[in-house]
């Protein structure tokens, strides 16, 4: 819980709303165009769905469409740019204690590639999660040929896969801050991240997985509500929360694990 506390502590500072404002518009746009409730939808409507072939299941668990892929590429670029401004400003705030969204071109120039890398690997991980869920469903369907047993085993394998994916995200999470703060190369940073994250694996894991659990709960709620306006509002709130939570979390965790002094905090507030 330590990193959740530290993250919320940073989010309570008086300038943070500017950063939230930065990601608001694209997050609402994402909520308007697409929804992340495909998995929840699949689980809720499992017994009516056609799960006889691999392709049929894959259509339920992942959205594969040229429009979606084009949107993904566009959102990748937009979010990478915004994220580089976000983390550049935040990193300067933590390092020097002054907060100002200035030098936008310089921030994009410096932090675009690490942000792009992080976001692209997250997207890839989400697609791999969908693929592995599909493999799980097809496998259990081929073995048991029974919808109830397939359902139970799917839930079980989903939970196992969730823990695995969260673990992978945790151990690679310190790569981006290490590149941004120290300027090391990508291989050294990944290597550092794998070594350093094991020191505080449990609080990192809690801080990474708890918001995702809330996010999934909201997605299930969306499926049951079925009112478009409400789901869009809920989705955009969740998107904004997630987009402003995780960048702060990785930097706070990085500063804490490295035992670096954070200048944005008064000495009395340093945990």
């Amino acid at each position: 819980m330590k990193y959740i506390k530290l993250t919320l502590q940073y989010m309570r500072n008086k300038h943070f709303w500017k950063l939230v404002l930065l990601v608001t518009v694209p997050c609402i746009a994402v909520a308007l165009f697409t929804s992340f409730s495909t998995t929840a939808n699949f689980i809720v409507h499992f017994f009516e769905a056609d799960i006889s072939t691999f392709a049929a299941v894959y259509r339920h668990t992942s959205e594969v469409d040229w429009k979606v892929l084009l949107g993904l590429l566009a959102s990748l670029l937009v979010f990478a740019m915004l994220c580089s401004i976000f983390i550049g400003t935040m990193q300067r705030h933590m390092r020097t204690g002054t907060f100002a969204i200035t030098n936008i071109g310089k921030r994009i120039n410096e932090h675009f590639l690490p942000s792009l890398l992080t976001i692209a690997s997250l997207f890839a991980l989400i697609y791999i999660y969908g693929l592995s869920m599909t493999i799980g469903v097809s496998f259990w369907w081929a073995v048991t040929s029974n919808k109830i047993a397939t359902f139970i085993m799917t839930i079980f394998s989903m939970i196992v896969m969730f823990f695995l994916v969260m673990y992978i995200i945790c151990i690679f999470s310190l790569t981006c801050p290490n590149i941004v703060v120290t300027g090391q190369g990508i291989r050294d940073s990944v290597s550092y991240s794998l070594r350093a994250s094991h020191r505080r694996l449990r609080p990192l894991f809690a801080a990474f997985s708890l918001p995702i659990v809330i996010f999934m709960a909201v997605q299930f709620a969306n499926v049951f509500i079925e009112v478009r306006a409400v789901t869009i509002i809920l989705d955009s709130i969740m998107n904004i929360a997630i987009c402003s939570y995780y960048p702060v979390l990785i930097f706070v965790a990085y500063y804490d694990i490295n035992e670096k002094d954070r200048e944005d905090l008064l000495p009395i507030n340093r945990m």
């Binding site: 151990i171 291989r187 050294d188 990944v190 290597s191 991240s193 794998l194 070594r195 094991h198």
Partner: peptide
């Protein structure tokens, strides 16, 4: 030295 981190450092 951990295996995974060394594996990537020497890749």
């Amino acid at each position: 030295y951990g295996f995974a981190s060394n594996f990537i450092a020497n890749l």
